[in-house]
Amino acid sequence: MSQPLTLTLAQRAPFTIRIFGGLFIVGLLILPFLALLPASHPLALSTWMLTLTGKILCYAVVAVALDLVWGYAGMLSLGHGIFFALGGYAMGMYLMRQAAGDGLPAFMSFLAWDELPWFWWGTEHFAWAMILVVLVPGLLALVFGYFAFRSKIKGVYFSIMTQALTFAGMLLFFRNETGFGGNNGFTGFTTLLGFSVTATSTRVALFLGTVILLLASLALGYALAKSKFGRVLTAVRDAENRLMFCGYDPRGFKLLVWTLSAVLCGLAGALYVPQVGIINPGEMSPTNSIEAAIWVALGGRGTLIGPVLGAGLVNGAKSFFTVAMPEYWQLFLGLIFILVTLFLPRGVIGLLRKGEK
């Protein structure tokens, strides 16, 4: 069996990467408390910057989730945006119910609806909303993955099917009659667990929750990578037919990591929505899922920490270019993908490792 492209961070990470990782974690834990400082303080952080960073960290969780299925199991998904959006919509339903009080959400009143659809029942309860955040993306991934892996669909065909899945979801949610706000989606949030969503303290709590989710995702990924399960996944990626010859059925391994990845995306979406203040079908756009693949490729697939770096670099650049030169952003993104493919096949992390040798 061929040697896996990458091992875990603890096994191969150079000293500079470990130092960077430690400083990165410490910085993330300190950052939200700077937003609590008075505006006149030289180290004060604006709520806007805190929100932007929290948004990028949510994307970083998606990048880690995608790396689990692409970097380790070799399944390139171009549809992870639907799992992210479904988690966001589940949280958005709760937030809309909080904003509406005893009445119907504003968009339903505008459409002259008389009652809530059945799938909105119980969404006024935070606990049920969190169950939906996990259950809906997880079940969709489980059903889709079961039939896809049972049919032995892989490679480019699997990528196309996942892209078709998220595109179909986007078209469905764009329709007003589906009960999810149509083109406008959900917005106008007011409170979360009784606290104002725009309050700085709430923003800090959401940011810390996002940091915890990201660290938990990385810890889970490293634990899986070091286990027998992780070794089987890399065998699926490198020589699936030989693995089957050895007596393993790869379908169960692929289905488990695929479903786990979808759940992580759903949780990231749930934290994304109250920080950004909106969720609409645009989050299911196939373009967003393709961008996620670029984050992983740029950072270094199969490394877990690399996709986090890639998500930060791309989205940081996106925040700059969409303000300074919005008409050139898509060209810049395409250029990144071409350059990474040609000159950084193992991403930025691979470049750092090569420089330390």
Rank of each mutant, 00 (worst) to 15 (best):
G252M: 01
I212D: 03
A223D: 07
F207W: 09
L206K: 02
I212V: 15
C246K: 08
T234M: 15
A239Y: 14
K228P: 03
A239V: 07
T210W: 03
V236E: 09
F207I: 11
L215M: 14
S227D: 15
K228F: 10
L233P: 08
D249N: 11
A235E: 02
F253N: 12
S227Q: 10
A219L: 14
V211F: 04
K254I: 01
V211C: 10
V236A: 06
L213K: 02
R203A: 15
A239H: 14
A205F: 02
S196V: 00
G247F: 04
M244D: 04
A239G: 08
T198L: 13
L255F: 12
T202W: 00
I212G: 01
V204T: 03
Y248D: 03
L206Q: 08
T202N: 00
R231T: 05
N241A: 11
S217Q: 13
N241G: 12
G221F: 05
V232I: 15
R242M: 11
F207L: 12
A219W: 15
L243A: 04
V197S: 10
P250S: 05
Y222L: 07
A239L: 06
R251I: 12
V204E: 00
T200V: 15
L213H: 07
L215T: 08
E240N: 07
F245H: 09
K226D: 15
A223G: 14
T198K: 08
D249T: 10
L220I: 15
K226G: 06
T234P: 02
R237S: 05
Y248T: 01
L215C: 13
V257P: 01
R203F: 01
A239D: 15
A199T: 00
V204I: 03
L255E: 02
F253M: 13
A223T: 14
K228G: 10
K254Y: 03
G230F: 05
L206E: 11
T210E: 00
S196F: 00
E240S: 06
L213Q: 01
K254A: 10
R242T: 12
Y222W: 15
G252R: 10
L208T: 01
T234S: 14
V232D: 04
S196K: 08
D238R: 04
S227Y: 07
G221V: 01
L233I: 06
D249P: 00
L214D: 06
V204G: 02
A239M: 03
F253V: 12
G230E: 08
T234N: 06
V197H: 11
L218K: 06
C246Y: 08
T210Q: 08
L256Q: 09
A225N: 12
V236Q: 12
V257R: 01
D249A: 05
L208W: 01
G209Q: 08
M244H: 07
P250D: 02
C246N: 14
L243C: 08
L214I: 06
A239K: 11
A239T: 10
